[in-house]
Amino acid sequence: MSAIEVRNISKAFRGHRAVDGVSFTVEPGTVTGFLGPNGAGKTTTLRCLLGLVRPDRGEGLFGGRPYASLPAPASEVGAVLEANNLHPGRSGRNHLRTLCDAEGLPLSRADEVLDEVGIAEAGGKRVAGYSMGMRQRLSLAGALLGDPRVLILDEPANGLDPRGIDWLRRFLDYQAHERGVAVLVSSHVLAEVEQTVDNVVIIARGRLVHQGTLSELTGGGESLHEAFLRLTDQENSEQPVGGSR
């Protein structure tokens, strides 16, 4: 059974089809890049998968169960949708502690994950004083609290400097290939993911256009960049708007 299974998800907002029958799977021990142009429906797909948005059709499953039916969701799935889902007036450590409370974890986990993402010294500072990169790391720390077997990260490299991106690559590599975590990471910046991902899922205009291994896609001498442009630019129909929120 796949760690993540997206099964035929469709979602329309005010008549506009943001996601249209998208299906794919993610296996344990792999990093899957979820790629597509801005507004292709990546974020909406992830929100449907995680139960924040109710899909019109289809469902998302984790080991065969919908997110809302998982007995302890945060200890099975760690997800970061936006690095700005943080209260600016609360310290990083207190943010994590509110999550420890809700997840029934000891408060000491907060300091452990702060250390794991490399911002232990900023734990006592209010989030208002954090850089975008520190917010990304704090959000990631929140996803790690329950020591999950699945990680879902939406545009995790946004706001990271080159050193941060390098750190993120090594982090994802470690999680998937050393610890056996199933990692799904969305991105619209191909250079970020090319060195990290094992598999790619590409969507455009709300529809799946490709799922397979990275080596399959680039095996014929085509770069990921060229393949991406070819796959996502087949039709000249109007680019959907408003699908990324």
């Binding site: 995680l50 924040l52 809302a68 969701p73 949708l81 700005n84 889902n85 943080l86 809700a102 929140g142």
Partner: peptide, 17 residues
């Protein structure tokens, strides 16, 4: 404040019910 600062995302990820 949960909607203002979008922390509601995290709140409902931790407690989807």
């Amino acid at each position: 404040s949960e909607y203002q600062h979008r922390t509601v995302n995290t709140t409902f990820l931790v407690s989807p019910r």
